[in-house]
Computed example of a mutant assay.
Amino acid sequence: MDARSESIPVLDLREARADDGSFNAAFIRKLRDAAHEVGFFQLIGYGAAQGMVDDVFDVTRRFFELPLDDRLKLDNRKSPHFRGYTRLGHEITKGRPDAREQLDFGPERPALSDYPADQPYWLVQGPNLWPDEALPELRQVSMEWARLMSDVGDELLKAVSVALELPEDHFAEAFEGTPAWMAKLVHYVGGVVEEAGNQGVGAHADYGFVTLLLQDHVGGLEVRPAESDDWIPVEPIPGALVVNLGEMLEVATQGYLLATIHRVQAPPPGIDRYTIPFFWSPRLDAVIDPVILPPALAEQARGISDDPDNPMLASYGANVLKGWLRAHPEVARIHHPHLVESGQE
C-alpha cells in the first residue's frame, strides 16, 4: 500500500466501546483525527453477518443484468419522490452526466399530499419502486442492508458527538421517529456515456450527516482533503465501508468536521463497478443548530467551505431537495416545474 492510500485511515468498530459501554478514548482520537484532517476513513468490524456483503453485491449485479425494459418499469421519471431507476448518463453532477445507472430507495413511507407551502422538501417522502416480479429478493436484501447501515450510522454519529466532547445523544433528537435515510444500488459503466468522459461521478460533497459506502474491488473513488489540490484514491478493502461526513456536520461545527469533496473516475471500457452507498440522515424537518465546540477544537475550525453556486444549508430537508432537483432535472421538470421555475434547484 502506497503512502497516498495510507492517508485514508482504517478504523475497527469492534474497538469503539469498552467493556463498560463507554467509548474507548483511542478509538475516539482516531475518529476525530480522521474526521477533522481528511473527512474520510474506512470501517471494518461493523457487524455484517457472514455472506451479507456477498448477497448485497450479488443482488445488485443481478438487478443491472435484468433486461432494460424490466429496469425501466422502475424509471425514476415515474416517481415524484426521486425513487427508482436512473438510466445511464441521466444523473447530473456539476452540470455533466455521470457514467452510472442506479436504483434509489429509502424508508417505506406514504407520500404526503398536504404540507406547508414553505416546506416543499416533504415531497421527497414516498414509496419505493422495486422489481418484485423480476427480482423479488432485491427488496428484502436491500432493506436488510439498510437496517444494518442505520445501526452503524447511529453508532458512528454517537462517536462523532463524543469526539466533539458532547454527550453521545447530542444529535439524537434530529433522527427521532422518521430519519430520512437514503440508499442506492449503483453500476458504473465506462466508455458508454460519451458526454460523461471519465466522470463516474463529478466532484461533490454529500449533504447529509454520515455516508457509508460499500465498494467492490474495482476502485475509482478519489477524495480531495481541505487545503489540498491532490486527489487521493480510496483503495478498496474487501467488505469495508468507506465513511465520510456530510455538509450538515460541516455547517454545525463551522468547518471543524469536513464534508470532503470527492469524485469517482469511470472504470475502463468493459469493466463494471458496483457500489452501495447509504446516507444516514435525519428527519426532513430537522434543522441543525451550531455546535458549541470546546476552545481547543474551536480554534481549529476552518469555517464553512461554501460554494456560492451550491450553498450548504442547516435545514436537512432544504439541503436534500436542492440536491435532488439538481441531480435529476428530468424528474424535476416533469413533477415539480414550479420549483424549477422558482429557482429552488
Rank of each mutant, 00 (worst) to 15 (best):
N128T: 12
L112H: 01
Q140S: 14
T93N: 07
R100I: 09
P97H: 12
G95I: 08
E155D: 13
D104E: 14
R77W: 06
M143Q: 14
D118K: 06
Q125K: 07
D114G: 00
E155Y: 08
R77M: 02
D118Y: 06
L123H: 06
L123D: 02
R147N: 08
P136W: 14
V124R: 05
M143Y: 08
D154I: 04
E91D: 14
Q102F: 11
P127L: 11
G126V: 11
D132V: 09
W122I: 01
L148R: 11
P131V: 11
N76W: 10
S113E: 08
D98I: 01
P80S: 05
L148N: 01
V141H: 07
R139S: 13
I92H: 06
A134K: 06
R77N: 07
G153M: 06
R109F: 08
P107Y: 02
R71G: 04
D104Y: 15
P131R: 09
D104Q: 12
R83Q: 13
Y115I: 01
G106H: 09
E108Q: 10
D98N: 08
E144K: 09
L138R: 05
D132S: 11
S150N: 02
L112C: 00
L138A: 05
E108M: 04
L138M: 15
P110E: 11
K94N: 15
L112R: 06
H90Q: 15
D70L: 01
S142Y: 09
Y115D: 00
L148H: 03
E137M: 07
H81E: 12
R96N: 09
H81S: 14
Y115S: 00
R96P: 03
E155K: 13
H81R: 10
Y85N: 13
E108V: 09
A99Q: 10
L123Q: 12
N128W: 07
R71I: 05
L138E: 04
L135D: 12
L112F: 01
L138I: 09
T93S: 09
V152T: 03
Y85S: 12
E133Q: 03
P116Q: 10
A117N: 09
Y121S: 08
D104G: 11
K78F: 10
E155G: 06
D70Y: 00
D98M: 00
Q119T: 10
K73G: 01
A134C: 03
D70P: 00
P127W: 09
E155I: 13
A117V: 13
G95V: 07
K94S: 14
V124N: 01
D104L: 12
R109L: 15
K73N: 03
E155N: 10
F82S: 04
A134T: 04
A111V: 01
R139L: 13
V124C: 02
L135S: 12
R87A: 15
R100S: 15
A99L: 10
E133T: 04
M143A: 02
G89P: 12
E144W: 00
P80V: 05
H90C: 14
R87L: 09
V152Q: 03
L138F: 10
